[in-house]
């Protein structure tokens, strides 16, 4: 077990409206630790010194719940591709490294404390139209509509989004296009998703804009940062859907949008 000495620069902020600043901590980590376990150890040390531990979101620690949200050395979830912060292991760092840890930065993701931000904007985008209206009990047999393996695989690729917000964090425009597009593609690829396809994209984009996310200038940083490797192709697809929906909209879509 090789251990390493690290200098951490961590964003500390007492509350939503309190001023914040980077604080420096020195710690030693084991290469087999996960990044969050390294922070656990730092927090135990802080506790020992009577200081308040660093607040950060986490839950599953398996890269699936999307809770963890750390800007590590300027990259969301850190340097390793297709890996969430909780799945990142310290072997990705070396002795003597300085590691800067900051919260996601976006006006739509206000900081609540230290590294914890409010991502409920994502929920509101889904609530606006990110669903298929299938009331419980109304369903026909699961095999009634065959779906080509390719379509269901592509839908699954998009459906893997864990709603972590790394795409927004990485995007120089703080744009939520990748997150929104992933949902539009997931549902739009499936036969079940067709009836609401137009109103869905209209309502979701409307909400996305209303939340104050930035606009996409096709940097592609989001795809690079996405732990689930959601492709920017979904963004192109969403743009196409939106144009089509807007230009062919008979009025109902917009009227009904949001109400689902």
């Amino acid at each position: 077990m090789s251990s390493m000495k690290l200098t951490l620069k961590v964003w500390r902020q007492a509350g939503p409206n309190a001023p914040g600043a980077l604080h420096t901590y020195v710690t030693t980590a084991d290469e087999h630790m996960s990044f969050l376990e390294m922070l656990d150890v730092v927090n135990e040390e802080l506790l020992g010194r009577g200081e308040e531990p660093i607040a950060f979101d986490h839950d599953c620690r398996e890269g699936i719940c999307g809770s963890c949200a750390l800007m590590i050395n300027g990259s969301p979830h850190g340097p390793r591709k297709a890996t969430t912060a909780c799945q990142l292991h310290m072997r990705s760092f070396k002795d003597g490294d300085t590691v800067t840890i900051e919260p996601w930065r976006a006006s739509a993701f206000p900081v609540l404390r230290d590294l914890v931000v409010d991502r409920t904007a994502f929920d509101r985008i889904i609530a606006a139209g990110g669903f298929i209206s299938a009331p419980t009990g109304a369903a026909q047999d699961g095999n009634a509509i065959p779906i080509s393996k390719e379509d269901s695989d592509l839908a699954m690729d998009a459906a893997q989004c864990i709603g972590c917000g790394a795409c927004v964090a990485a995007c120089p425009n703080a744009s939520a296009m990748l997150f929104t597009a992933a949902k539009v593609s997931h549902l739009g690829r499936l036969p079940q998703g067709q009836p609401e396809r137009d109103r869905r994209v209209l309502a979701m984009v409307q909400q996305m804009d209303a939340e104050g996310f930035g606009n996409c200038t096709n940097y592609g940083e989001c795809q690079e940062a996405c732990p689930k490797e959601i492709s920017v192709e979904n963004i192109a697809r969403m743009n196409r859907d939106l144009v089509r929906a807007t230009l062919t909209d008979r009025g109902e879509a917009h009227a009904g949008a949001g109400a689902g």
Partner: peptide
């Protein structure tokens, strides 16, 4: 959309 900037932001691609 991004009032406060990062102290460190690595643009990768």
């Amino acid at each position: 959309a991004r009032p406060t900037n990062y102290n460190r932001h690595t643009l990768r691609v």
